[in-house]
Design a protein around this nucleic acid. Structure first.
Lengths: 145, 145
DNA sequence: CCGCCTGTAATATACCACATTACAGGCAAA
DNA sequence: TTTGCCTGTAATGTGGTATATTACAGGCGG
């Protein structure tokens, strides 16, 4: 199992928007070219990021721009924006434990809070990482040339 | 996306084995009955847990038993045993970033260590939770009746 | 030796991620 | 205001994966 690539696509997207800034025209086709996926996928992710208030999109001969500063955009924001994990949570619980069995009857209650704790731990860590951190690392790679 | 139910099945499995202990005969059919899934799934998970050294299985008119004490079996052990997450990691990275693009060329390098950090955080939290914790909660639910 | 149980392969099904085509609608520039 | 690019989105295809199910070979204990 893996978290959908929509998440990494989202971060990549934001990085390109930040990098090309207001100088160059950024379109879903340009982005799709850099990311290496279909433009429709990009437009969908763009829509998610827009709904979440991370970017602004003006139609027509368009302009896409960050709606927040890079250090105000965290991995968690992107992760939530693109619905990386559904409402049932990170862990898929088997759906039919036997209520006639003392374990089956209570396993859900006994595990849920623990699984939530694990998921929350992961999400809290994602809140610590920002787009600015990614840009810093990209810049320092670029300087090596 | 969600982590396969094989993980929760694995924990459920261990809980039943611990609960029914050495008194009653525990078979894949009994387990499947409590868990509410097909016996073959149970046997596969059993195999995983056996390989990982968490349970012992003797064939024939069989006996299944925990190979460690409940407080020595963590969620992480089960999670690893059933291959909840493949070797590529928790996050599925888009596979064809454009090497001609300054961002596409470096996005992988810039994000990998951060994603690893997130995953490791989750796994560390799982190491803190044991089968014994689950059994404690189940027991206290049972006492409510 | 008989019967129950595990190990495992083969097959089916349903769902999901991602790709692709197509087109309607909007904004901006000319 | 018209034209052309671009976004929003629906419809469809496809491959991969999770789980179910049937079937059977092999092993151990009674």
């Amino acid at each position: 199992m893996q978290i959908s690539s929509k998440f990494t696509i989202g971060v990549h997207l934001l990085a390109v928007i930040d990098y090309l800034g207001e100088d160059e025209k950024v379109t879903s086709n340009v982005l799709a070219g850099s990311i290496g996926v279909n433009p429709v996928i990009v437009r969908n992710v763009m829509g998610n990021l827009k709904e979440a208030g991370l970017i602004s999109i003006s139609q027509g001969r368009s302009g896409i721009a960050l709606a927040k500063k890079p250090d105000q955009i965290t991995f968690y924001d992107v992760y939530k924006a693109v619905d990386s994990v559904n409402d049932d949570g990170l862990f898929h619980f088997h759906e039919n434990p036997n209520p006639e069995c003392p374990i089956g009857k209570n396993i859900h209650k006994a595990m849920d809070s623990k699984l939530d704790r694990v998921q929350k731990c992961m999400e809290d860590e994602m809140r610590q990482i920002t787009l600015a951190d990614v840009m810093t690392d990209i810049q320092s790679e670029l300087k090596k040339d």
